[in-house]
């Protein structure tokens, strides 16, 4: 039996005396897209940041492809796992060109063929070469989020962690980014873990999801079950109802 791509056992995270993640266990096989939904303060983003190595104060066990990871990640880790952040305005350095932002990974890791890799990354997210030497403030929100995705792709990772990747975008741009993420997952054979407060977005992009409430993952189910209203936990049902009420037109 092959190891799952991501395996988390009893993950606990506390900020001071307050425990915000209370023993989360989940497992994501390679190639799957796993969604984490919950309201603000449910701990969903904290889980994702612990997976990314951005939060180092956790206990429990996190394994990638069977190998446990330490709190502090070695450089090689980031060639396997990358992240796309929520805010396309805050996740790009305001004083660096797109070229510099994209090539930083290559420079840190001493990779060659910088021009080729940067251009291929821009191609993969369907951005024209002309944006390469622009600054972030010269791009639209959707273009910025594509740059953020390109930055993650340039590491040629196996896992992409997505933190509310479309919630700061207009719905028409959200559709484009969701299509792009769906395509990339197939073409690059990626494994996704996506955090979102939007049930429809998670249902669209993911195969399975976990619902978080007050730091606990109260239910895990497949999207098929979710769509067929087979959720068992009351909080999941509540979120589904709200999601439906807010998404349907009168």
């Amino acid at each position: 039996m092959t190891n799952p791509m991501i395996d988390v056992q009893d993950l606990r995270i506390a900020f001071g005396p307050k425990e915000v993640v209370k023993g989360v266990t989940l497992s994501v096989p390679a190639g799957e897209s796993f969604g984490i939904v919950g309201e603000s303060g449910s701990g969903k983003s904290t889980v994702l940041r612990a997976l990314a190595g951005l939060n180092q104060h956790w206990t429990g066990e996190i394994r990638f492809e069977g190998a446990p990871v330490a709190s502090k990640r070695p450089r090689a880790f980031f060639r396997k796992v990358q992240m796309v952040f929520q805010d396309p305005f805050g996740s790009l350095h305001p004083r660096q060109t797109i070229d510099r932002i994209l090539s930083e990974f290559l420079s840190v890791n001493g990779l060659d063929d910088v021009d080729g890799r940067v251009n291929r990354a821009l191609d993969a997210v369907a951005l024209p070469q002309s944006v390469r030497f622009r600054f972030p403030h010269q791009l639209s929100g959707g273009q910025r989020q594509r740059v953020a995705i390109a930055r993650a792709l340039i590491a040629e990772p196996k896992v992409l962690l997505l933190d509310e990747p479309t919630s700061a975008l207009d719905v028409s741009v959200q559709a484009e980014v969701l299509n792009l993420l769906g395509r990339l997952r197939k073409s690059h054979g990626l494994t996704y873990v996506m955090v979102s407060h939007n049930m429809s977005v998670v249902a669209h992009l993911c195969d399975r999801l976990g619902v978080m409430q007050h730091g606990e993952m109260v239910e895990q189910l497949s999207v098929t079950d979710l769509r067929a209203r087979r959720a068992t936990h009351p909080h999941t049902r509540e979120l589904v109802e709200l999601g439906q009420a807010l998404a349907s037109t009168a």
Partner: peptide
């Protein structure tokens, strides 16, 4: 309206 993902159907 048409570009929204749906919770009901894939």
């Amino acid at each position: 309206l048409n570009c929204l993902p749906s919770l009901d159907e894939p």
